[in-house]
Design a protein around this nucleic acid. Sequence first.
DNA 1: TCGCTTATGTAATATTTCATACATAAGACT
DNA 2: AGTCTTATGTATGAAATATTACATAAGCGA
Lengths: 276, 276
Amino acid sequence: MLNKLKDKKSLNGKFSTTNFTKLGNYGTGHTSFNTKGLNDFQRTSVIAFPKKETVTNQLLAFESGNDFADFMPHLESTSVAAGEYLYKSDEHSNYVYFPETAVISHLHTSADGKTVEIAMIGSEGVSGLSEIFGTQPSAHCAQVTVGGSVTRIKTDLLKQEFHRGGDFQIRLLDYMNAHILQISQRIVCESFHVIEERLSSWLLMLQDRAQKDQWQITHEQISLILGVNRPTITQAAKNLREKELIDYSRGKFYIVDREGLEFRACECYSTLQNVH
Amino acid sequence: MLNKLKDKKSLNGKFSTTNFTKLGNYGTGHTSFNTKGLNDFQRTSVIAFPKKETVTNQLLAFESGNDFADFMPHLESTSVAAGEYLYKSDEHSNYVYFPETAVISHLHTSADGKTVEIAMIGSEGVSGLSEIFGTQPSAHCAQVTVGGSVTRIKTDLLKQEFHRGGDFQIRLLDYMNAHILQISQRIVCESFHVIEERLSSWLLMLQDRAQKDQWQITHEQISLILGVNRPTITQAAKNLREKELIDYSRGKFYIVDREGLEFRACECYSTLQNVH
DNA sequence: TCGCTTATGTAATATTTCATACATAAGACT
DNA sequence: AGTCTTATGTATGAAATATTACATAAGCGA
């Protein structure tokens, strides 16, 4: 639990800039989303072959390296910034991405341009797998919600590896199953749960994947992810802040009382927690 | 197009019993859902080895039978009635089902017992595939929405066949991709589209799969599928009937003006039409 | 420090659906 | 024909969110 933030002085928007400087040193320094910009994956920082120790993605956590001797050298480590697109909808992706500390959102767009998150992917999962399974380009875009590191591999190479069969194939199929569960639960969530519960669940899912108590995101961005209007998020967030479960200010978001937030969240959070 | 139904006399609930008898001879005679009953798959009618000609499911439509010489003899043909469960949630299924003329709904249930359809499956698809991919029992139940025939195969046998690799594996993976698309689009639909549009899309999807102009379903059943209250469906259906797009009476549903219905539907229908 | 940009606060109205309750009517079964 | 069950019709108030508009304030950069 984050004791500093439990200090009442830092709650309800009353914390000072000093508090932010002290607490806000997790991020990558990227402060704005490029929601409408072009794919700027090109300007991504260092690309390197990862050491085995730095690969913490659970799908890449191999007990014995032997089976993957041909496979591991093709992995690349890179970092991605919040707002960046890994790939866009109706576009083929050259890479498949295994998040390490980054968190990725799969977003669908409606005919009139509204967006909604289909799934959230962290180090438990992988983004871009539809390139392996299907022939059509993906209907969603993959946007970075929380910046951090990812391990990536060329789509063609992963496809080869996948069709060799064996343990890694089984692992990816099992994840695909869990992924379908996550998307399905989202339907339940949007059908039956009010925005304050949904926001709570979403924040908990995000914290599990980002593994921080604080990250960069605005109400506007959350509204585009949950598929609701911005003032609706502001209202829900305000309620959660008044209950001292979260805190936020100008694009910085904090989890203050995790257990309280779990209590406020709909069942969707705990249901999915047992899956991955 | 169904000319008889375009006769104005048969619209707006004014058609007579005679009309029904004349037009209503598609079904299997099953008139009520067993929404709360036990799995009554046991009392399913004839089970037989299908002839190749009767297998119209698109995933089983093999150009050359050679590759599947070991596989085809394990297929069983059977018929299922509306309301029946192929399998329930949190239960392992012994079979994987390839619908022929039947239509299957995958339903999720919320913590407080409300249900919503995750996906609709007809002869373009398959139900129970999660048994092949994952280790956990499925979180959804599979209920028959429109009675008809299905081709089924024992889960274990299909799993073996799948892991042999080859064309059939590729075909199932490609379907899995399309299936994810359908579920994803449902999220968009529930987020942004009003019930009259959603009902229109759903009816069109159902007609594509049931391949009839008329089938058995009540407002109550539709409400459990679309995850809304029953009077909400009645209101939306009434509006569509007043526009002479559909007709219905006591559990019988008709598509009257398919093109008109397509015009009234949200984009979700046409988006998914291009996938399968 | 000033001004600009942007994030958040807030309010008022509209729309959609919920939740509930009860009325009506179709048709199945005596 | 009479009765019963069930599907549909309808009304009403409540709740949730949309929609729009504008106010306020934080913090960045000149």
